[in-house]
Amino acid sequence: MTKSLVTASKLCVERGNRRVLDNISFTINKGDIFALLGGNGAGKSTTLLTFLGFVKPSSGEAIINGIKVEEDIQAARGQIAYLPESANLYAHLSAYENIEYFLSLAQISRSSQEISLSLDDVKLAPKMRIEPLSSYSKGMRQKVAIALAMLRRSPLLLLDEPTSGLDPVAIDEFNTILKALADAGTTIFMVTHDVYGACEIAKRVGLLQQGKMASVFEAVGETKISAEAVHQAFRQSQPS
């Protein structure tokens, strides 16, 4: 029996006097990957921020593992490892220092070996790991942020465009890692512009259009979601 870990129930969100999310409902089951697609400004990041409690819904509910976010923000956040859209980790710190700082912030302790393994997973060159992030490329920084999110070992990963800035090989590798995490029971809720990658790994793909959930695609059994179909729906959803 699969249990839903994430539930959005008739979520409405206003930002700056404008309705940004309009009556959104979906659920994500434990161990599933849910990919949220949509044009710029569709409300994808806002959806994640609502689950993190940074944005308050005007009506509806965001629920994580049975916890209503609005009622207990800290408990809800405790379930989540979050990778923000443009997570600039500290530029004057090295990969190790950044990871140590943020893990300590979350009151999590990991051995340096575990940290190294995680950086191995994202294929960050070992000689770079003690250099300050200011000497990293955008993709390398993203890899550190991803390693950090994985080290949290939270039940739920909220990823906002995690592969932006990564080269195609790194994207493939990242998707493989996500798949493995999901297989191991981590629930993944990701926002992405990478339609093909999303269809490759996601159990379900939601298409957000101007704050409304335009359509949801689901992988049935071993059959993956058709990227062609999603792509087409995406094109149709864009205002001409």
């Binding site: 993190l52 940074f54 800290q74 956040r77 979050y82 923000p84 943020f102 979350a106």
Partner: peptide
């Protein structure tokens, strides 16, 4: 400005009190 505010608040059990 550097996009870390939410990351920090979400990571710390103290939230923005950190």
């Amino acid at each position: 400005r550097e996009g870390r505010y939410e990351l920090i608040c979400a990571a710390s059990p103290l939230g923005s009190r950190v």
